Amino acid sequence: MNKIVSIHYLRGIAALLVVAYHNKTSGYEASGNQDIFEYLFKGGAFGVDLFFIISGFIIAYSTKENTENNLLNFTLKRLF
């Protein structure tokens, strides 16, 4: 199975957007300027949606060539 490296990079960017969004209140306290942090990190909610869409695609893509249709085997592989 081939890895799609660019989609992993995009998923990483989406995760960073979410982390930055959740930490924007620290920026409020440090600078006292709420408006700039609201503008810079307003994409955090979109980052959540993008992360889950890409993760769903990666799961579906990783099972594309799977000849085993065993739900237990699939679940155990994802846990570990």
Results as ranks from 00 to 15, higher is better:
residue 22 H to Q: 11
residue 18 V to L: 08
residue 35 D to I: 04
residue 66 N to Q: 10
residue 62 S to D: 12
residue 23 N to Q: 12
residue 8 H to Q: 10
residue 11 R to N: 03
residue 40 L to N: 04
residue 76 L to I: 03
residue 58 I to E: 03
residue 53 I to M: 04
residue 54 I to K: 03
residue 55 S to P: 04
residue 79 L to Y: 11
residue 46 F to S: 04
residue 34 Q to Y: 13
residue 39 Y to V: 12
residue 6 S to L: 05
residue 10 L to I: 10
residue 39 Y to A: 09
residue 9 Y to L: 11
residue 11 R to A: 01
residue 15 A to Y: 01
residue 17 L to S: 07
residue 70 N to V: 03
residue 68 E to I: 04
residue 35 D to E: 11
residue 23 N to F: 15
residue 79 L to H: 09
residue 76 L to A: 03
residue 39 Y to F: 14
residue 50 L to C: 06
residue 63 T to Q: 15
residue 32 G to H: 07
residue 54 I to V: 08
residue 4 I to S: 13
residue 36 I to A: 11
residue 74 F to S: 10
residue 71 L to W: 09
residue 78 R to A: 08
residue 55 S to H: 07
residue 61 Y to N: 14
residue 14 A to V: 00
residue 62 S to V: 02
residue 22 H to L: 09
residue 74 F to R: 13
residue 19 V to C: 08
residue 23 N to S: 14
residue 34 Q to A: 15
residue 29 E to P: 07
residue 72 L to E: 14
residue 42 K to H: 10
residue 51 F to G: 00
residue 2 N to D: 12
residue 70 N to M: 00
residue 64 K to S: 09
residue 10 L to K: 07
residue 58 I to M: 09
residue 9 Y to N: 10
residue 46 F to P: 05
residue 19 V to H: 05
residue 47 G to N: 00
residue 34 Q to S: 15
residue 66 N to D: 13
residue 45 A to Q: 14
residue 62 S to I: 00
residue 20 A to Y: 08
residue 55 S to V: 03
residue 65 E to A: 15
residue 47 G to W: 02
residue 34 Q to E: 15
residue 36 I to P: 08
residue 58 I to V: 10
residue 63 T to W: 13
residue 58 I to A: 00
residue 24 K to D: 05
residue 42 K to F: 07
residue 23 N to P: 05
residue 73 N to R: 12
residue 74 F to E: 14
residue 45 A to D: 13
residue 16 L to V: 03
residue 17 L to F: 15
residue 57 F to W: 14
residue 5 V to W: 13
residue 14 A to S: 10
residue 12 G to F: 08
residue 74 F to N: 10
residue 27 G to T: 06
residue 45 A to F: 13
residue 16 L to R: 01
residue 31 S to K: 07
residue 22 H to E: 10
residue 10 L to S: 03
residue 52 F to Y: 12
residue 77 K to V: 05
residue 43 G to S: 06
residue 22 H to C: 06
residue 22 H to G: 09
residue 3 K to F: 13
residue 28 Y to P: 01
residue 58 I to P: 02
residue 70 N to S: 06
residue 21 Y to P: 02
residue 80 F to T: 13
residue 16 L to H: 04
residue 30 A to H: 10
residue 60 A to H: 08
residue 71 L to Q: 08
residue 59 I to N: 09
residue 68 E to V: 02
residue 1 M to D: 12
residue 29 E to V: 07
residue 11 R to G: 00
residue 34 Q to I: 15
residue 10 L to P: 04
residue 67 T to D: 06
residue 70 N to T: 00
residue 1 M to W: 13
residue 55 S to T: 14
residue 66 N to V: 01
residue 76 L to V: 04
residue 75 T to N: 01
residue 44 G to D: 06
residue 43 G to T: 00
residue 42 K to M: 08
residue 67 T to C: 01
residue 63 T to Y: 14
residue 21 Y to S: 02
residue 79 L to P: 06
residue 59 I to P: 08
residue 30 A to E: 12
residue 78 R to H: 14
residue 30 A to Y: 12
residue 66 N to Y: 04
residue 44 G to P: 05
residue 4 I to T: 13
residue 24 K to L: 11
residue 2 N to R: 14
